[in-house]
Design a protein around this nucleic acid. Sequence first.
DNA 1: TCAAAGCAAGTGTGATCACAAATCATAATC
DNA 2: GATTATGATTTGTGATCACACTTGCTTTGA
Lengths: 244, 244
Amino acid sequence: MQKAAIEKNNEAIAAQLAPVGRETVQDRVYSELRRALIGGLFEPSQVLTIRGLADALVTSTMPVREALGRLITEKALEALPNRSVRVPPITLERLDDLLRARILIEGEAIALAAARMGPRQIATIETILGEWDEMRALKHKKDVDREVTLNQSFHFEIYRSCGSAVLIPMIESLWLQSGPCIRVAIYAFSEAGEVDTAQYHRRIVTALSTQDAQAARESLVADISRPFTFLRSKLQAAAAKDQT
Amino acid sequence: MQKAAIEKNNEAIAAQLAPVGRETVQDRVYSELRRALIGGLFEPSQVLTIRGLADALVTSTMPVREALGRLITEKALEALPNRSVRVPPITLERLDDLLRARILIEGEAIALAAARMGPRQIATIETILGEWDEMRALKHKKDVDREVTLNQSFHFEIYRSCGSAVLIPMIESLWLQSGPCIRVAIYAFSEAGEVDTAQYHRRIVTALSTQDAQAARESLVADISRPFTFLRSKLQAAAAKDQT
DNA sequence: TCAAAGCAAGTGTGATCACAAATCATAATC
DNA sequence: GATTATGATTTGTGATCACACTTGCTTTGA
């Protein structure tokens, strides 16, 4: 009866081998499109074609159409009556609508997270803050992509701590929807004054490390409101100019 | 120059003809599955196969797999590592998580709606309430399906008035996720005591017609919490029994 | 000269097929 | 007799094809 011995051996092997995983092509396409959307690589109102994307991603149309369908249901893309799909255009109403929803849900998430984040999690987000400073130190080239990625890591590291399997996908959906807008704002920030985003994040970290849920929520609201109000005034100015 | 005359004739025709619309098979499959999910026609933990559903819906696999993919992204279904898909099982944590999210988001939606609902909208939900009473009057047969449908119409008529294109899809997603659970609760209600759901709805209508956002939110919370807390205690009892 | 008809290229949708992985039942082995 | 192999069936995934609709351009007619 070597059963126990065999079992033990298997466990030893299992401990050394990493699970290989089995990501489908569709999953990769979906992730890639998500990344592009959140990063703002597509412009608002830009139309996307299945075959065009399939060529760009070097696959067939099959995985692309399923990924597009999924993105449409989470409102990251929009299905036109012509059956073509585009990234949703920016309007003032939509901007306000998105911001309100993000304040509501991300605010709740960070309030929950404030009570649950241990020193381990705090350290992680402080590391991200450190990378941010590092990037800022050598400011010869403006790496907007990296800026977007770090911002995303910072926020989602916090949201992950809220412990809600329901809220997190909703927040992802909201980021997907606001991604194309935000990129525009970040570019504009980089050109105009460039208030330091890190200072907002630092206030969030301070609030979280003292488990002050209310302060954390308020700091977060200030952080995410900034690009929206900025974009809002820019849009209004553009609308006023069109009027004349 | 008959141009104006022709134009006029075309308009006359357009006024009489209804737009035919062009719903795809995939859309119909998706709607049908949504209906089934919200109505609780599938049991939690039930696994669904593409070919099985395609046979049941009398189409090919193509529209079904795309509809399933969409439902998976909105967490209405769950993709297992085996690549099979099932309706998510009920757990205590998930129940609490869903209720918290629903209170947060639907509460916000009804508060927004309170300020925006006119006499027209109030009349509509009162009509739905009337149909409910009518159904209750002839209580010889318990029509759970109709009960579910009326409840859905009542709530979404309100949510539609909140004017947020972002919040409403989120609420739909939440209903999709809690549908399979709620059905269990409604069945249990029908057997056990059967407190009148309509009285909760009436309190909501009263609050809305006086534009009292706070009262509306509280009444709504009471309404949607009921099946959840009921189910919660039932689950805990079952867990306790399993322990022994 | 300009608008409408006609044609051609492009695009989304659904069906079918090929293949790989999973599942289940049966058979073989210790 | 319990466990492991082996085989058949089922299932999801991706590719390809056929068809219908849209779109943009050219051509035709007044």
